[in-house]
Amino acid sequence: MSEIWPVFFIGILLFIVIAALSKVKKRKKKLKLYRIQTPLLIDERHPELLWLETRLTESLSPDFIKKVKSRVLMNHPAWTDNDFDWRLFELKRYFILAKILKTVPMFSEEVDEVWHEMLMFTKDYETFSNKFYGNFLHHTPNMEVVPIPNERALFDWVYLQLFEPTANSRLLWGTFLKHPLEAELLENFRTLSEPSLLELYFKKDEEAEDAQKILVQLLNNDIQQAEFIKQDEDDEPFKRMTSENNHTYLLPAMVYFSMYEAEDYQHEMDHLLPKEASHGSSTSSGCSSFTCDSGNGSDSSCSSSNCSSGCSSGCGGGCGGS
């Protein structure tokens, strides 16, 4: 009998340690407390795309945002105004990506929580969606348990072309540039025509087509630059990033190492990223957006219960009818 007690106490100790580690893992990272002064888009880099921000602002009525904020802070009593404002800021960036790309997985549980609350105001959300997209932007869970590294890589490349990430951006989305671009995607951009690429990777949206063509050209430019660097045989073609926010500087390196050093991609990129930026934690989840004809919009409402179920392995739930 005396031999059982040590085993029993060791079992209790292991249970306590595992429970403590689980709590640490689930603890939300605290956002930096400072005002949002970063523009939604990088205005000096792509001034021709600033209309996207204007159109988004016009489509999201202040009254709608006020109601969403009130509901979010009521359901998340630990959140401050700062917490809501930063999550909404990054959700706006997500909405812009969803106007450009064919599919956009939601890689932040905390940003996604604001989207969930928006969907509770069905009419307001439908009005916003129809104004900005011309149809209803649905929220649907991706039931895959495994991460989506290829889609996260494309998300990162487009995000960093259009937006300047802040410390809070990295806390909410997780570390950028962790995954190489898919070999098939790079080959398609090397060989396929612009119309074919638009059909494969971008949303059918005449209003956004010029922005989509700009992104096609930018990725083609990065591919051509990578091929030139490879021929040049420079041992150190890229230098460590000097500013934590200037991730755009490393996009050619992302393409180069995706093409020629895919197996050592993360190791190579870690040498170029600032130490803080290369060791963040990812909050990848598996929800995404898609649009359909606005005639189905009336079937897209959901209740609190079905918004919080069905995607436990992803971002905590998905709303919207198909």
Score class of each variant (00 low, 15 high):
F155Y: 14
F155L: 05
D156F: 00
D156V: 02
D156Q: 08
D156N: 10
D156H: 06
W157H: 11
W157R: 04
Y159A: 05
Y159W: 08
Y159C: 02
Y159D: 08
Y159M: 04
L160H: 10
L160P: 07
L160D: 01
Q161V: 01
L162C: 12
F163I: 09
F163K: 06
F163L: 04
E164Y: 10
E164N: 12
E164V: 12
P165K: 11
T166V: 03
T166S: 14
T166P: 07
A167M: 07
A167V: 08
A167K: 12
A167T: 06
N168A: 07
N168E: 03
S169N: 04
S169G: 04
S169V: 02
S169H: 01
S169Q: 03
S169M: 02
R170T: 13
R170P: 00
R170L: 07
L171S: 09
L171Q: 10
L171A: 07
L171H: 13
L171D: 13
L172C: 04
L172F: 05
L172E: 08
W173I: 01
W173V: 04
W173Q: 05
W173N: 05
W173R: 03
G174C: 09
G174K: 07
G174Y: 09
F176W: 15
F176D: 11
L177K: 11
L177S: 07
K178W: 05
K178C: 06
K178P: 00
H179G: 04
H179R: 15
H179K: 15
P180Q: 12
P180E: 14
P180W: 07
P180N: 13
L181E: 13
L181D: 12
L181K: 14
L181F: 13
E182I: 13
E182A: 15
E182C: 08
A183M: 10
A183T: 14
E184K: 15
E184F: 14
E184M: 12
L185W: 06
L185F: 09
L185G: 10
L186W: 10
L186P: 13
L186H: 10
E187M: 13
E187C: 11
N188K: 10
N188Y: 07
N188G: 13
R190I: 04
R190L: 08
R190G: 14
T191M: 04
T191D: 03
T191G: 04
S193N: 15
S193A: 15
E194S: 02
E194Y: 00
S196W: 06
S196H: 03
S196Y: 04
L197S: 01
L197N: 01
L198V: 06
L198C: 00
L200Q: 15
L200S: 08
L200V: 00
Y201D: 00
F202I: 00
F202W: 00
